[in-house]
Structure formats: C-alpha cells, structure tokens
Design a binder for these strands. Structure first.
Length: 269
DNA sequence: GCGACAG
DNA sequence: ATCTTGTCGC
C-alpha cells in the first residue's frame, strides 16, 4: 500500500486546508514528470479499414470508478469478444475515511482505493490484469494537466485513457464553445473535435460516442496512449454514450452497493 | 468580488 | 456525484 507522503487532510470538520492543496499540487507536478503522452504499449490496435478483424491482442480493458461515497469498482472487459464480456470484477466498500471531493483533486480521493484493487489482482497473478485503463475522470484535460487518469496511469504504470462525462472548465473551454464546434463539424463526417485551450495546448477531444447523442463525452490522454489512439479505442468500445467498461463499472458498483447496504457498520442508533 | 469547478 | 416520478420514444 503506497503512501504519497502526506496525510489526508481531514482531522476535524475542516476538510482541506490550503496547506493540503499545496501538497497535492506538488505531488501532481512531481508525478507529471513520469507522464508519457504518446503511444507506448506492447499490443496492437485493430486496423478497421483493411480487415474487419477487430481485436486487441490478448485483450483486456479496465475501468475504474467510485460511486456514492461508498464503493470503488474495477471491472475488466475482454475487448476481443464482440459483446465486450466482463471477465473480472471487484469492489471496495469505503468507510468514512475517504477524502472529500475537491475539483482538480479527484485523484486524491479515488486513486488509493482503485490502486488497491489493481494491486490485489497483481498480487494474486490474475490473468485478467488489465492492459489498458479507461478511467472515469479526465487525464490531460485538467487545470494542471494531470487528472485522475494520468495519476492512475503513472502510479499503476498501465496505459490509460481519461473519460469525462461533463466538461471540466479549463483553460478557457466552455460548453457553448464545444457545442458550436461540434455543430460546425456536424456534416463533415467526423464525430469529434479536438479541444485546444486558450493557451494553445491540446487538452483532449469532445466526442459524440453514439449517433443519437448530442451531449458529448470528453476524451483525454491518460498515460502511454496518444489522443488519436485514445479516440479510436473509445469508438470501439461504445455501445452507448458512456464507454462500456465505465458503464459496466458504474452499473455493477450500484448493484454491489445496494446488495451490501445492510451488512456493515451502518448502525442506526 | 463573482462565478465555475472531472466525480 | 446524489435525491426523485413520471414521461416520451425507439
């Protein structure tokens, strides 16, 4: 269990001090030095144009999330199967010790529990240990360019893609701006637009993952996967608006939480 | 000062 | 993110 050299800033009612946030910022900057934003993985992408064969070698994809201040979930899908079969799932019910959610510091609430779920697979030599993470949260699309997807990717050393279901207003990006750009590209064949901040940095892409959906999802680089590759992969695993690994992790976390609502220390007095 | 702020 | 009933549509 890896410490980050800080204590969760929750002693009393005071949730997070300026001190804590400064420490968190330092950690993000430090970990960012290990970030890789280009393709760097051993497996091969399918080539949709030349062959109808859609497979990632030995395929495994993962998704992670936390839900309702109570349940972290890790679900692995086999992307070599057309139906994207779930081949592994695990959950972790949280006690009351978790850090609060503070915008741009999501990783400090969610990463520890998710890394623990991954570590458990690794320790037991599980054959379904994921080759790629789809993370419920942004990667580079983040005020300091180091969101949850980067955080998890670097610390677990697994290629990672960040998925946001809502826009994090960063570097001048606005939803109305995104809408306009998407509409402008509406008939040009592509279903995504690249998001460039006011600073000129490419932060990610807004993408209509389903034909009918007008509300986009936000794809950004997590670790060891370029934005172009990330977009291709996400397109392959969207049965609905939310990419299937994340959707399954969400659904199954709800289910697990509901079935375990009575067995713990939820003592009502 | 005000609003905005992934999950 | 969560709390919530119905409702409209494929």
């Amino acid at each position: 269990m890896d410490d980050y050299g800080f204590r969760h800033g929750r002693d009393r009612g005071e949730s997070s001090s300026i001190e804590t946030q400064n420490q968190w910022r330092e950690i993000q900057d430090l970990l960012k030095e290990r970030l890789i934003t280009q393709d760097d993985f051993p497996w091969k992408l399918p080539i949709p144009s030349s062959s109808g064969n859609v497979a990632v070698e030995e395929g495994g994809g993962g998704a992670l999330l936390k839900y309702h201040a109570g349940c972290g979930s890790l679900v692995v899908l086999d992307v070599t199967t057309p139906t994207l079969q779930v081949v592994y799932q695990d959950f972790s019910l949280l006690t009351n010790f978790d850090a609060p959610y503070i915008p741009s510091f999501l990783a400090f609430r969610e990463a520890p529990i998710l890394l623990q779920l991954l570590q458990k697979m690794k320790n037991t030599g599980n054959p379904f240990y994921p080759q790629l993470l789809l993370v419920d949260g942004n990667g580079l699309l983040h005020p300091r360019g180091f969101g949850l997807a980067c955080h998890l990717g670097v610390l677990a050393n697994i290629p990672a893609i960040g998925i946001g279901k809502n826009l994090h207003h960063v570097d001048g990006l606005t939803e109305s701006g995104v809408r306009q750009l998407l509409q402008a590209k509406d008939n040009s064949g592509e279903d995504f637009i690249t998001l460039t901040g006011s600073s000129g940095c490419v932060l990610g892409a807004a993408m209509r993952s389903t034909k009918g959906s007008c509300k986009p999802i936000y794809v950004s680089v997590g670790h060891r996967v370029s934005l172009n590759t990330a977009i291709k992969i996400v397109k392959m695993i969207c049965k609905y608006r939310v990419p299937e690994p994340i959707r399954q992790a969400d659904i199954r976390a709800r289910d697990h939480l509901q079935k375990n609502s009575g067995g713990n220390d939820g003592t009502l007095q």
